[in-house]
């Protein structure tokens, strides 16, 4: 029943996927290239760029900064997001729509503008570019994503379960930690992972906020690009892809396993 029209759409979709993934595949491919300039042609398989990467102090420092920044961002913005979601989903709050819009606002404002405003305001308060400024910036623009993920899940957790716990004598605190939080855990983890990845990837705001001498992985790549295209960049890119793609996929796999176990 599906004619040539469907075939054409299928071919088009294939081309779109190729467009999305070919350049990324080339990054991974070149990172294993034995060629001394790290560019085409491929002359053989080699791990030399990864070895050089692991000996490059600047890159290792950037990695540590990015991991710390991402982890702290995830912890803070998930905490803020979960608390706010609870209030918005579980209580009738006057002006709920305005509050929701306010909390989502960081993704409605272009990141450049957010970056400029935060930088100049904190500078005015005599708080210069620093790691805490970087952290505050990352928290503020990851918060909406955490909020959206957690709220969506919270809506689907039935109130009855919580009410049952309370009617059996559990305090609101006990109910939260023993009933709501475990049920909400997948969303909390997803939100935290989301916040981590967004923070780990960010460059637009980070270039404004980072103090001189401090680099995150993306700003380090950016700085390396400006000098010359060193083949280490492809290796670094491959590592980045492994972290930001591998981590969520691993999380997904673990979540599935847990679900299977508890389902059986």
């Amino acid at each position: 029943m599906r004619g040539w029209g469907w075939q054409a759409i299928r071919a088009w979709t294939l081309l779109v996927y190729a467009f999305m993934f070919l350049p990324i595949a080339v990054v991974v491919l070149l990172s294993f290239n034995a060629n001394q300039f790290g560019s085409f042609p491929m002359t053989g398989f080699s791990l030399q760029w990864f070895v050089e990467l692991s000996q490059n102090d600047a890159i290792l420092r950037a990695f540590r900064t990015s991991l710390l920044l991402g982890a702290l961002t995830a912890a803070i913005s998930t905490t803020l997001g979960v608390l706010a979601s609870l209030a918005l989903v579980r209580y009738r709050v006057p002006g709920e729509n305005i509050i929701s819009t306010m909390l989502i606002a960081p993704i409605l404002v272009p990141e450049v503008v957010l970056a400029v405003a935060l930088l100049l305001f904190l500078n005015f308060l005599s708080l210069p570019k620093s790691f805490p400024l970087l952290l505050m910036g990352h928290v503020i623009f990851t918060l909406p994503f955490v909020l959206l993920v957690v709220q969506a899940r919270l809506v689907s957790i039935r109130r009855d379960v919580e009410e049952a716990a309370m009617s059996l004598g559990a305090s609101p605190m006990q109910t939260f930690f023993q009933i709501t939080l475990p049920l909400l855990m997948p969303a909390v983890l997803a939100g935290a992972l989301f916040a981590f990845t967004i923070s780990f990837d960010d460059i637009t705001g980070t270039l404004f906020w980072k103090p001189g001498g401090v680099e995150t992985v993306p700003t380090q790549i950016f700085a390396m690009l400006r000098n010359s295209i060193s083949p280490e960049i492809n290796a670094l890119g491959t590592v980045m892809i492994l972290i930001t793609v591998g981590l969520p996929l691993l999380g997904l796999a673990i979540a599935r396993k847990i679900n299977q176990k508890s389902g059986a």
Binding site: L80, L83, L88, M102, L103, V113, A117, V139, L147
Partner: peptide, 21 residues
């Protein structure tokens, strides 16, 4: 209660986005 839960997020957004704007 909901206001206590909302305070950290609302304060952050206000101080780090709206006031700076």
């Amino acid at each position: 209660q909901p206001w206590i839960l909302l305070t950290p997020a609302l304060t952050s957004v206000t101080l780090l986005l709206f006031v700076p704007l």
